[in-house]
Design a protein around this nucleic acid. Structure first.
Lengths: 192, 192
DNA sequence: TCGTCTGTCTAGCGGTGCTAGGATCGAATC
DNA sequence: GATTCGATCCTAGCACCGCTAGACAGACGA
């Protein structure tokens, strides 16, 4: 019995190693550099081992995305719990969101740009993703304004943040004015 | 002399065929299905012919993106010239933008999601891209509000539209409420 | 009519995600 | 302690990718 438990532990440990290595490699050299061969080499196993843990590369990306969603949710909550007053909270939330996207571009890509085979806005949406949206909703719901559904408002605000994050990182928006854009967004969208 | 002109005409015609075919194939089966082999087969030439027109697949994507940018700029202008009153214009603009993204997903991807090797927000930005932004600026500049730089406001509004477009298409936002999100965005962001 | 030269194709390179099948090693049994 | 057996892992290879070198043919100018 103990033998089997040890094997399961080792297996789980190796799975974490795969996800962590994929993430590391993606942050260092971009997702294009994350090939099954390179990934296998880094974890010092052969390629087929990856397929005993994940159905394919897509699922590995999905695993990184889930990890990222948990971290982002935690970061958003940490940034808003300290702040008092709706305006301070929303600004902190937006700044933290954009900051996360900028500091973890590969993870952000896994979450929203690449196909990780994850369900969204559906019943079988994984918990970390639902929780990420919930973290947004907690701070944004209170500034939705009268007669506006908090969920809908959160969707719009989130979309705006997502647009800023992706367009900035793709070089479509000049970085120096990022802060001004953020403040304009908060001023206009949120009802304070 | 005339012979050379004819050849240039034929060459230009073939180049248009390549771009149109790539676009068609991408809209039908997604960009993943646009391989150089399949593309070559569809235009009834061999693979290397593609490389006598474009440096690589990236440039073909870029060509589709430029075509799309021109069309989008035209669509935005057409939608706003008829409308009178800032509010009507901005709503029409936003609706047209989201509509274009929804109806031409592959082209929209070529413009903003994929790497077409195009420069943005720089001196050597191709004319159609600048013109697309200009089309947004024309209608959005008038609702930026006092003390807010029209360019900055346009960037924020554009980012929000981009976020709505991409998240909706990726299944991150439920389509039925798309219209409500659009109206909320216009109501809040634009100073009318 | 004859070279030349442009234009096109065949064939192939190194890489990708993924998998079939054989080898190996450890655990359980006699 | 020897032996069987099953899980685990690796080697080798599939079809496909973007891209290119070099052979070839056909149209051109002399």
């Amino acid at each position: 019995m103990s033998v089997q438990e040890r094997k399961e532990r080792e297996r789980a440990s190796r799975e974490r190693l795969i996800v962590a290595t994929a993430r590391e490699l993606a942050e260092q050299q971009g997702w294009d550099a994350v090939t099954t061969r390179r990934l296998a080499e880094r974890i010092e196993y052969s390629q087929p081992v990856l397929y005993s843990h994940f159905r394919g590369k897509r699922e590995i990306i999905g695993a990184v995305a889930l990890e990222g969603a948990s971290e982002m949710a935690a970061a958003l909550r940490a940034a808003t719990t300290g702040a008092d007053g709706p305006r301070t909270r929303v600004t902190a939330l937006a700044r933290t969101y954009l900051d996360f996207a900028e500091r973890n571009p590969a993870v952000y890509d896994a979450m929203f740009q690449l196909d990780g085979g994850l369900a969204f806005a559906a019943e079988d949406t994984p918990e970390p993703l639902k929780d990420g949206f919930a973290a947004l909703l907690e701070s944004l719901g209170e500034v939705a304004g009268d007669g506006v559904h908090p969920g809908l408002f959160t969707e719009v605000f989130w979309a705006a943040l997502h647009g800023l994050a992706t367009l900035t990182r793709a070089g479509r928006l000049p970085p120096p004015e990022a802060e001004q854009r953020l403040e304009l967004l908060v001023d206009r969208l949120a009802v304070l």
